[in-house]
Design a protein around this nucleic acid. Structure first.
Length: 276
DNA sequence: AAGTTCGTCAACCGCCGATAC
DNA sequence: AGTATCGGCGGTTGACGAACT
């Protein structure tokens, strides 16, 4: 006897999220934290799969996310890490605070790959590209060893010059290019947005590290009791208003840095970086 | 101005390891 | 011990806007 299914996938909405759905999800997670994703959509009043909620939250709604293009420093770091880790985007993302694996993966595929190729570097092996060869003649059909760009998933990551140690005690954590304090004081691009946000909130329930039903029950603001302002702005509003506004709108006590819990336990080691 | 192509990125899909039952 | 689900990951898709013809 296993667990209950995540979702029956019947009658569940797919596709782009609406502002209202975002608001519901954000409000719910900020007040309750996520106990287990399977029940989040139900409790939040969403016709979404829990998986979809998790994805939306981690890739778009998380309050600590930086928006916009990666800086040059971040880009360099991504390239460095990719050379060592290969396509392990989550590991790479764990070392870039405020960035998601999806974002990095997209940026890699759309920007960095091209850049590296232009520079004559193979984005897969990080070695200089071979000079273009004349097309093989028809008769010698035996394909030349390594094809220009074999499917990446079939290749192991390039042999790391020095494999990044992932164990906690041994890991020589390169001090992240972006220090935690820089997240609370985001880069110029985000500064204006952040200016409206003193980031002085942390719903205790959001801090609950795991499925502590007591925490969510004790501090829970019943979904039905969400304050009206929660619904007074659209998704753009969420970003514009800033998290102060969003959180205060959610009726949550505001006396702690809302982002603290994200880096408080950050080891930049594994997926456990983002403790909610 | 209209049509086409290209680039970007949010979201989905399917797989896998961990874990609850 | 075995089974089924959860949560997370990486790959892929498709919608949309920008650039180009």
């Amino acid at each position: 006897m296993g667990r209950q299914p995540c979702c029956d996938k019947v009658g569940l909405k797919k596709g782009p999220w609406t502002a209202e759905e975002d608001q519901k999800l954000v409000a719910f997670l900020l007040t309750h934290g996520h106990c287990c994703w399977r029940v989040v959509p139900k409790l939040a009043g969403l016709l979404r799969c829990g998986k979809s909620c998790r994805l939306r939250w981690t890739n778009y709604l998380r309050p600590d996310l930086k928006r916009g293009l990666l800086s040059d420093d971040e880009e360099r770091l991504v390239i460095d890490l990719h050379a060592q880790l290969g396509n392990r985007w989550s590991k790479i993302a764990a070392r870039l605070p405020g960035r998601t694996d999806n974002e990095i993966k997209n940026h890699w595929n759309t920007h960095i790959k091209k850049k590296l190729r232009k520079m004559g570097i193979d984005p897969v092996t990080h070695q200089p590209l071979e000079p273009p060869r004349p097309p093989p003649r028809e008769q010698d059909a035996t394909p030349p060893p390594p094809p220009p760009e074999p499917p990446e998933q079939q290749r192991p990551p390039p042999p790391p010059p020095q494999e990044i140690e992932e164990s906690e005690e041994e890991e020589q954590e390169p001090s992240p290019l972006i220090e935690p304090h820089e997240i609370t004081a985001p880069p110029p691009a985000a500064a204006a947005e952040a200016a409206t946000s003193n980031c002085s909130v942390s719903p205790a329930s959001v801090l609950s590290p795991s499925c502590s039903s007591s925490a969510s029950a004790a501090s829970a603001v019943d979904v039905a009791e969400w304050p009206e302002p929660m619904y007074m702005f659209g998704m753009d509003g969420i970003m514009d208003v800033g998290w102060n506004g969003l959180i205060s709108g959610a009726g949550v006590d505001v006396d702690v840095d809302p982002f603290d819990h994200y880096y408080h336990d950050a080891s930049f080691d594994d997926q456990d970086v983002w403790i909610i």
